[in-house]
């Protein structure tokens, strides 16, 4: 006698917190850090619009310990998000065929990271000069 009674296991609501998905969850969470940094930049831009006093207050806030710690955390989030995004990049595009052969995904990731570093470097040099 055979009896069919398929058993359905329910997915844990905390699946994203399990070790298996930790890398993914950190990548997605670091996106929040990127958004927060965007908000900080916008606040700075808004202080420029509101006049010299508001801008001076914004620059003053930037050198407080809270702002420095926040920026260090946001920098870490930004680096993690940038790195993991460029690792995801080759998955989001059609296979790149050059000379009849597929370009390895690592090459695409490394080229993108290199380009991002060059742009960042150019920005920093531009800001300092």
């Amino acid at each position: 006698m055979s009896e069919r009674r398929p058993y359905v296991r329910r997915q844990s609501r905390l699946w994203w917190a399990s070790r298996t998905y930790r890398g993914y969850t950190l990548r997605e969470l670091s996106g929040v850090g990127v958004a927060v940094y965007g908000a900080v930049l916008l606040a700075g831009l808004d202080s420029v619009r509101r006049g010299p006093d508001a801008y001076a207050a914004f620059v003053g806030w930037l050198s407080t310990p809270v702002a420095i710690v926040l920026h260090l955390v946001l920098l870490a989030a930004m680096l993690l998000h940038g790195l993991t995004w460029f690792q995801t990049l080759p998955k989001t595009m059609p296979r790149l065929i050059v000379g009849g052969q597929a370009v390895p995904q690592k090459t695409i990731t490394n080229a993108a990271i290199g380009l991002a570093m060059l742009c960042s470097l150019a920005l920093v040099i531009g800001a300092l000069s």
């Binding site: 059609p94 296979r95 065929i97 000379g99 009849g100 052969q101 597929a102």
Partner: peptide
């Protein structure tokens, strides 16, 4: 089909 066309879907 050329080898490049095949490489686009082969894996």
């Amino acid at each position: 089909q050329t080898p490049a066309q095949m490489a686009a879907y082969e894996p």
